[in-house]
Amino acid sequence: MIQRIRISILIRIYERILHKDAMKLKIEKYRLHGAKIGENVRAFSPILSSESYMISIGNNVTISTGVKFCTHDNSAIKVFENGTDFVGQIVVGDNSFIGMNVILGGGVQLPAQCIVGAGSVVTKSFFEEGCVIAGNPARVIGNVENLKRRYTDNVFNFRGMNAEQKKKEILRNPEKLIRK
Score class of each variant (00 low, 15 high):
1 M>S: 10
5 I>L: 10
7 I>D: 06
8 S>A: 14
8 S>F: 04
11 I>H: 02
12 R>E: 14
12 R>G: 04
14 Y>G: 04
16 R>H: 13
17 I>H: 03
18 L>V: 01
22 A>P: 13
22 A>G: 01
23 M>Q: 15
23 M>P: 08
23 M>I: 11
24 K>P: 07
25 L>I: 02
25 L>C: 02
26 K>H: 10
28 E>A: 11
31 R>Y: 07
33 H>F: 13
36 K>Q: 14
41 V>W: 00
47 I>H: 06
52 S>F: 07
52 S>G: 09
53 Y>A: 08
54 M>Y: 03
57 I>P: 14
63 I>H: 00
64 S>I: 04
64 S>A: 15
66 G>T: 10
68 K>G: 13
70 C>D: 12
71 T>K: 03
74 N>V: 06
75 S>W: 01
76 A>T: 13
78 K>Y: 06
78 K>F: 08
79 V>T: 12
83 G>R: 14
86 F>M: 09
87 V>K: 15
90 I>G: 12
93 G>S: 07
94 D>S: 03
95 N>S: 10
98 I>F: 00
98 I>R: 00
99 G>L: 12
100 M>S: 08
102 V>K: 02
104 L>Y: 00
108 V>I: 09
114 C>Q: 02
115 I>M: 11
115 I>F: 01
117 G>V: 12
119 G>N: 04
121 V>I: 14
124 K>W: 00
125 S>L: 01
125 S>P: 04
126 F>S: 15
126 F>Q: 11
128 E>M: 12
129 E>L: 02
130 G>N: 06
131 C>D: 03
131 C>M: 11
132 V>E: 05
136 N>M: 07
139 R>D: 08
142 G>V: 08
146 N>I: 07
147 L>D: 06
148 K>C: 11
148 K>G: 09
150 R>W: 01
155 V>F: 12
156 F>G: 03
162 N>G: 06
163 A>E: 13
165 Q>S: 12
166 K>I: 10
171 L>F: 13
173 N>P: 07
174 P>C: 03
174 P>H: 03
177 L>Y: 08
178 I>Q: 12
178 I>S: 12
179 R>N: 10
